[in-house]
Amino acid sequence: MIRLVSRALVVLLAAVVGCSGARRVDGLDPSSLPPDLRADYEVFAHRCSKCHTLARPLDSGITNDQFWRIYVTRMQRMPGSGISDSDVARILRFLRHYSAEQRAKKAAS
């Protein structure tokens, strides 16, 4: 029984890694972003994934720039965040772009 479950898990893992390939599910595909925002996105992706997945900010539904400013400074003050003031500026630059895209998507639908 134990051996069976262990084997099933290994096979499942191999299948899942194999099938998922280069699909970037957790964050965004940087090549889909304007070139001048890619480096800012990388700062966001690194700093905002330390304590939770990127789904937290990307699927939060927040599209208001002022709210993002408050939110990012709140996360900056989490112990061990490693988010410096210059990171905040870069993260907000990416989030402004992302929010504008989300707002446009909402308006279109």
Partner: peptide, 16 residues
Amino acid sequence: GFTYAIERGLRLKAST
């Protein structure tokens, strides 16, 4: 253990 993101906000978690 491993996690598999079915989509961004949905993950499968398996561990021994």
